[in-house]
Write a protein that binds this DNA or RNA. Structure first.
Lengths: 129, 129
DNA sequence: GATAAGGCTTCCAGCTACTGGAAGCTCAAG
DNA sequence: CTTGAGCTTCCAGTAGCTGGAAGCCTTATC
């Protein structure tokens, strides 16, 4: 299977797949002509990566998870810890987003949104408080 | 006021202030010895930028907002449109975060987190579905 | 006056996770 | 034989800083 097909099979763009190889997340073999060849193990790794990235894991976390996946002596506690770390990040981000959303909503409601210069948003951004 | 003081007055690191000058968001004057001099206008701009960045506006949006702030003929509708754009981004991000959070939570609950290899998280990431 | 510490300057590199594009090799079809 | 598609590598750029090196300026101390 060449890179185009691997791309279709995993939903990852060819550029991304090459990048994952470059940073050592995958190591597809090569055919005589120098083309990458993707076997089942490569496709599994790529799908795994696509899933993990879809949950927002960083590539370094993906690397760890991938190592754990292929380690028959892994402890599920190690996996869980990584996932909990990601969840914590997510919740931290969610909190910050809620704060921004509240602020922005208030400002937007207070702004007339007409042809005049008077604007609560500008005032709020300009205020020293 | 030199850059250190401007930093303390605005909460922005000196590096960031220099970067903002580099990309043309501010244009502090220079003293004889080449040091940056921050006047009231510069400090106001920096505080404005700090506030806007705190709400997650991108630097290009900050640039537009800054231009609107100093434009006496601005229309508050233009400001409002930018703020609504940011709010829309925020809500889109919040939705995606909620989805990830739900998935992760489910996976984490299903993972024993012990010394055994069996792990729902790995299984879910490895599954083709 | 010498010297050391600290602040200022610029410039270069690196971070995350790709993405776009150029130059060039390979392969299949007509 | 040529054309077009697909593959390769390499370089550069994205956002918004951040760290660090090398070197000038200023102030304090001896």
């Amino acid at each position: 299977m060449n890179i185009q097909n691997a791309s279709q099979a995993t939903g990852l763009p060819p550029k991304t797949i090459r990048y994952y190889e470059e940073i050592g997340l995958i190591a597809p073999s090569r055919t005589e002509n120098g083309y990458r060849h993707f076997g089942d193990a490569d496709l599994n790794a790529l799908r795994f990566l696509a899933s993990a990235r879809g949950l927002g894991f960083k590539l370094e976390q993906c690397r760890q998870l991938l190592a754990l996946q292929t380690d028959p002596a892994r402890k599920s506690a190690d996996v869980k810890r990584i996932a909990q770390g990601r969840l914590a990040d997510l919740e931290e981000t969610a909190r910050r987003i809620e704060i921004m959303r509240g602020e922005l909503n208030r400002m937007i409601r207070a702004c007339p949104g007409n042809d005049e210069p008077g604007c609560a948003i500008i005032n709020r951004l300009s205020s020293t408080t």
